Computed example of a mutant assay.
Amino acid sequence: MALDREEIMQIVSEIWEDLLDTDVEEDDDFFDLGGYSLLIVNVVTEARKRGLEMSANDIYTHKTPAALADALSAPAAGAPADGPADPDFSTVWETGLSPLRTEPSPTLVPLVAEGTGTPVFCFHWGTGNVRFLADLVDSFRGERPAYGLEMVGMWSRERPALSLVEMASRYLRDIRAVQPEGPYLFVGPCAGGRIAYEIARQLEESGEQVAVLAVVNTMPPGSTELDAAWGLRELYDFRLASLRERFEVPDLLTDQERLMRGMVDIAWLDENVDPADLHWRQAVWAAGIFAQEHYEPRPYGGEVTVFQLAEHADRPEADWGRVAATTETHTFESAGTLPLLRDAGFAQVLAKKLASYAG
Rank of each mutant, 00 (worst) to 15 (best):
E293R: 04
T224D: 11
L338Q: 03
M1N: 11
E257C: 02
V165L: 08
T329Q: 13
L269P: 08
R258S: 12
R101A: 13
V249W: 00
T127H: 08
A229H: 10
A113I: 07
P220D: 02
G35L: 04
P297F: 03
W320Q: 07
V306M: 04
S139D: 13
Q282S: 06
V215S: 10
R131G: 06
A134L: 05
K49I: 11
G231D: 08
A56H: 13
H312A: 11
S334F: 02
Y60G: 05
G148H: 04
H294E: 08
Y295Q: 06
A134D: 09
L340R: 08
F307S: 10
G288T: 04
Y147N: 05
P104E: 09
R176G: 09
V44I: 14
L232M: 13
E181G: 06
F346V: 12
P250A: 06
P145G: 01
E53N: 08
M260P: 04
L240E: 00
P189F: 07
S55F: 14
P110V: 06
M1H: 14
L232S: 10
W320P: 02
L72S: 06
D227T: 14
V152F: 03
R244Q: 12
S206Y: 04
P221F: 04
L97Q: 14
G78L: 09
L162K: 11
T337R: 11
G345W: 08
L253A: 12
Q10C: 09
E328Q: 15
S356M: 07
T331G: 05
